[in-house]
Amino acid sequence: MKVKAIVIAGNGTNCEREVANACRLAGAECDIVHIAELLAGRKQLDDYHFLNLAGGFLDGDDLGSAKAGANRLQHARVAGSSETVADQLQRFIAAGKLVMGVCNGFQLMVKMGLLPALGGDHRTQSATLTFNDSGHFEDRWCELVVDPSSPCVFTSGLERLYFPVRHGEGKFMPADAGVLSIIENQHLAVVRYCDPAGGEPTMEYPWNPNGSTAAIAGICDETGRLFGLMPHPEAYVHRTHHPRWTRQPDLPEEGMGLWLYRNAVEFIREKLL
């Protein structure tokens, strides 16, 4: 049996093609499915193992990043049924499957309550992603340090990562200090922005490009199967994606973003097939 991945597209997603490419390079079959196909009931999440929520600007981020997109998933009914895509998603999560949201996908997960989903509550929002301290969009590559004790399935065995951020609303903020301490104590803060030399989490601009609390760039839920991050792993799956590939001949052919997708595919092969 094959590992089947899905990327939801439409209404302003932009990165569906490169996310699908990353999934395929990692060994999964991958369909790019327009939201209209899900709402028409012709496709459903139940047929997949790995859900990807790609970067972009859902509905232009007009009501705040991913807000209108979250509202659609929560309230638009799938034709011929009484359920929403969000209902399918809850079933998907309960089945122990994997979800990764990148950038706008991460914003969507946080605003739907899928992350950090403390205590297994996947419906209540307890953190947010808001405007960068700079007040505008920024495209910049960032060094990330991985929490080795994190339950995150995707980063298993990884220590340092280097990906681009490309967002205007990437500042991570927990609802309160209590939420932050649970995130930190349970090692849910999977990746943090760090200084390139020492690898220490940093609040210093531009290493921390948006002013995220505790330098948090990405978080997972308690199971480690739901993961979201602002930096784009799918943007670094080949050597030539690296901004300095022309001056670093020793870079491996494969980009480190691919490792996250390989971890996902391996997990599914072991646990879900």
């Binding site: 990165c15 093609r17 970067g55 505008h136 495209d139 490309r166 943007a235």
Partner: peptide, 10 residues
């Protein structure tokens, strides 16, 4: 330059 996404689509 940094205010434009110059690498979406990978």
């Amino acid at each position: 330059v940094r205010r434009y996404d110059h690498e979406v689509q990978a």
